[in-house]
Design a protein around this nucleic acid. Structure first.
Lengths: 216, 216
DNA sequence: ATATCTATCTTAACAGTGTTTAGATAGATC
DNA sequence: GATCTATCTAAACACTGTTAAGATAGATAT
């Protein structure tokens, strides 16, 4: 009758001693998220179903609703982790780079690399209608990933904050558009390693064209 | 038993005299495509269902299969018309422009304008998994729209064909990414006219930043 | 230790989806 | 006017997400 949806009571104070399944699963939230990510990795964003996620976690189709409300709630959690992973990748990409231009270049490559390596997750992260688009944590995670871009771009272009914001939007649009078009096979096959390597080369050329060494 | 799927017997030689509904609809293909486009306009890409399209056309859920095979077939036809409309918009955008830079700028604005004015259709055009991605006519229509870009970019950059292709991919990626991110509300609300106008201004700035008046 | 309480999960059902099969109907052809 | 063929319907199937009601297990309190 009541719909509790605690959704974040798991790590409250003391550690849980019994993590393994019984009637009470114990780790259902994590199991459902892991199952969802596995489906996205295997079948892509269109292949996800709530029932399949429940099946893989070994519970009934109704079980997820107690933890996530509905499918959107579960996918929102998956998307948040996706944005966190993306932000990590963008952060790692700049770690060993000197110039701002090198950093931006590396971030662009890392962004598309993430999309090509995790297409299902990536597509779901930007499938607003399948997520709780107004969720505060989701918006924060998305913003945090975008901030990684803005920092590097601000270093590159200098200028006013407005100019920096414009340049950041430009960089994000370019790599995001390239990733999306690549995943829709507009630049050739993406299902084999050879195709992905060629696409990577194309991206490299695009970034060098738009942000040449001489500076903009 | 047999699955005919004529799919293009409509305008074969003589004109059809009786276009209005009976048991034989007469114009079911067009009616289904129109219904689908209406759904996409009203509900977006996620709102489309084959049964709803059939409902609007006044036929049973099984009727579309005789003309389009399945939902992918119908949506492929819708996507083809979408690409045709997009190519038209890109063509019209350059018609009154002088310099190559003006043309590219106008095309970019037109591309995003199309996406913002027809979000459902636009999203469906790039939802490969919901279409017959290998359909020859679909690929041709998509290529034709892309060619509008390549022509203008070749005029702008000159250089080798490879350089032109890189530049075209860069331009397409940027405007496509911007459109996609805008539709996912990453640049603010897009549901009201004020929001759309601000987004248009942002795009204008991005294009001026990436392709400045001084030339590249 | 026993009873109670509460979170967790199941069973069952509902309305909806895309697709297939078999059959009915209407328009065109001979 | 009979036959033929394209077109559409009716019914069924296996799915989907979600909800309501009830069972169970673990924790808490007595």
């Amino acid at each position: 009758m009541k719909k509790p949806i605690p959704s974040a009571k798991r790590s409250a104070g003391v550690t849980r001693p019994r993590p393994e399944p019984g009637y009470h699963h114990g780790e259902l939230q994590e199991a459902l998220i892991a199952a969802s990510e596995a489906i996205l990795a295997e079948q892509g964003a269109e292949g996800f179903t709530l029932r399949e996620a429940a099946r893989r976690a070994g519970v009934s189709p109704a079980a997820p609703s107690h933890h996530f409300g509905n499918a959107q709630g579960l996918l929102t959690e998956v998307a948040i982790r996706g944005y966190d992973a993306l932000a990590d990748a963008l952060r790692k990409a700049v770690s060993d780079k000197r110039s701002a231009r090198e950093k931006l270049h590396a971030q662009g490559m890392a962004y598309v690399g993430f999309a090509l390596r995790h297409p299902g997750r990536f597509q779901m992260m930007f499938a607003n209608k399948r997520l709780l688009a107004d969720d505060a944590r989701l918006r924060q995670a998305s913003r945090a990933a975008g901030a990684e871009f803005e920092m590097v771009v601000a270093e590159l272009v200098g200028g006013t904050p407005k100019q920096a914001k414009t340049a950041a939007a430009a960089a994000w649009s370019t790599v995001h558009g390239f990733a999306k078009l690549a995943l829709e096979e507009k630049f050739g096959s993406v299902s084999n390693e050879a195709g992905r390597r060629e696409i990577t080369i194309t991206l490299d050329r695009i970034l060098n064209y738009l942000w040449p060494a001489s500076g903009a």
